[in-house]
Write a protein that binds this DNA or RNA. Structure first.
Length: 479
RNA sequence: GCGUCCGUAGCUCAGCCCGGUAGAGCACUCGGCUUUUAACCGAUUGGUCCUAGGUUCAAAUCCUAGCGGACGCACCA
């Protein structure tokens, strides 16, 4: 009974446009057409046709039969002109309503914008210069039951989504109608591939480490907590990959990295998503200065691979990755902007308040106070400091690196200091990881390590204002 | 967490200040036209005005509360 009631309700909730498409779906089935077939063989991707016939003159016809498949994004003059889009591009289709074949006469009234079709016909260029396929046969590949979202601008109407929330909640729609959205994710995929290429070619290996842990370490952040039923224990989702990767370094992996999802139970903003992707790299027998070079080289390399240039435009500001990144100590910067000589947490506070946002061009800030760096090695000749740098781009912290702390006794002391801070109410202080200290007691060679926010770098390289624009399915409040 | 703004047809919005039959464009459907690319011309269809309560003869409009969302600020990579 419940089901019947719901069915009736559902039907009533269908909009006119949806009812119309439902009617057409039934019409297709009455003609013996399967609206959801299994497979379709095409002869070309649309991009390949555009390339192959780029020299075809206006009004010139060919006898070349081609077969393409894609989604109908527009239709004019009673399906005389149709725009078809596949993963690679867009092409026009043509069919004269006076002379078209019978099966097309029957089919077109049952099609809608948004439907997937396969088309076979001869290719030509129209007098107005549009590369066009004269439709001889059309195959329905998927009937859409809902209209694609459109944006109205005056009397103008085009595919698009004006509601930001819909773009993120129903990313599939966003991807259909917004080229930029698809391009962003495509470029992020290239970014990750090229980071791997860069590191792999330097004999680094990628190893996966656990997401589920009994304690979340390696960073100062609040974790998500979950529960393992059969073990009967609470587990936390990782907030960094650091401590496991260094265990791998203890075990003999001299060049190791991981690109992985990190989870932090903190606020959301244009720059923060609760789950995001980091890369951490550990390189044995090198120090933080070697890592500066590797990081700079890597960022420059991927900028070129992703955007085709080492100079990119971000939100109207030029970011130049081609020249050597500025290298400056935190103390120098604070002095430059405030005139003060500071140390410790006061130095870091002053840096965050007065300097960070001014670091627009890629800048390596180095020599950090020891108090805020419990996993970094003490500075070899600057008491109270550690050997650490952070890369700032457009005022945003993008990478963080240090000469890794390899002295197990020092590490134990640092964890103890953090434990005191935690006892004092700082719930983001680092958690004491006894097994990690134990690992160090078996010997970690001199090692530099670096972590970088992939999403943030992706934002710069895709000119995206929000981190949500480079994450396919950003975290959303449940409806 | 604090502040500002928004919620009316499938979509984009007007109407709200100053209460009096629910509007426009586009989309859809039908008809006409036929080499377009915002096609064009004509007609029709389409509404829980976010929800609940209050004031009133009468509420999309005024009042209260709630729900949902956007943006800014604060915290965090």
């Amino acid at each position: 009974m419940t089901t019947v009631v719901q069915t009736v309700d559902d039907k009533q909730e269908l909009t006119n446009l949806e009812q119309e498409r439902q009617r057409k779906l039934e019409g297709l089935r009455e003609l013996g057409i399967d609206p959801y077939p299994y497979k379709f063989e095409r002869s070309h991707f649309i991009k390949d046709l555009i390339e192959k016939y780029k020299d075809l003159a206006d009004e010139e016809r060919t006898e070349d039969m081609v077969t393409v498949a894609g989604r109908v994004t527009n239709q004019r003059n009673d399906w005389m002109f149709v725009d078809l889009v596949d993963d690679t591009g867009k092409i026009q289709l043509f069919s004269d309503s006076k002379t078209r074949a019978e099966h097309l006469q029957q089919l077109f009234p049952l099609l809608d914008k948004g439907d997937h079709i396969g088309v076979t016909g001869k290719i030509r260029r129209t007098p107005r210069g549009a590369l066009t396929i004269d439709m001889e046969t059309v195959t329905v590949l998927s009937k859409t039951l809902k209209p694609l979202p459109e944006i109205v601008e005056g009397k103008r109407r085009r595919l698009g989504i004006s509601d930001v929330e819909t773009r993120y909640r129903q990313r599939y729609l966003d991807l259909i109608v917004n080229e930029k959205s698809k391009d962003n994710l495509y470029k992020k995929a290239i970014l990750m591939r090229e980071i791997r290429n860069f590191l792999d070619s330097r004999d680094f290996v990628e190893i996966e480490t656990p997401i589920l842990n009994t304690e979340a370490g390696g960073a100062a952040a609040k974790p998500f907590v979950t529960h393992h039923n059969s073990l009967g224990v609470d587990l936390t989702l990782r907030i960094a990959t650091e401590l496991h990767l260094k265990r791998l370094a203890v075990g003999g992996f001299e060049r190791v990295y991981e690109i992985g999802r990190i989870f932090r139970n903190e606020g959301m903003s244009i720059k923060h998503n609760p789950e995001f992707t980091s890369i951490e790299v550990y390189w044995a027998y090198t120090d933080v200065y070697d890592m500066m070079g590797l990081t700079e080289e890597m960022v420059r390399y991927v900028a070129q691979k992703v955007t085709g240039s080492e100079i990119v435009n971000y939100q109207g500001t030029e970011l130049n990755f081609s020249k050597p990144f500025r290298r400056v100590t935190m103390q120098e910067l604070v002095k430059e902007h405030t005139g003060k000589d500071l140390v410790g947490k006061a130095l870091n506070d002053a840096f965050e308040h007065h300097c960070e946002e001014k670091l627009i061009e890629p800048t390596m800030v180095y020599d950090y106070p020891i108090e805020i760096s419990p996993l970094a090695k003490k500075h070899r000749d600057k008491p109270g400091f550690v050997e650490r740098f952070e890369l700032f781009i457009y005022g945003r912290e993008t990478a963080n690196a240090f000469s890794e702390l390899t002295d197990p006794q020092d590490q134990r002391q640092r964890f103890e200091d953090q434990a005191k801070e935690r006892a004092g109410g700082d719930d983001e202080a680092h958690v004491f990881d006894e097994d990690f200290v134990n690992a160090l007691e078996y010997g970690l060679p001199p090692t530099s390590g670096m972590g970088l926010g992939i999403d943030r770098l992706a934002m710069f390289l895709t000119d995206s204002a929000s981190i949500r624009d480079v994450i396919a399915f950003p975290t959303m409040k449940p409806l």
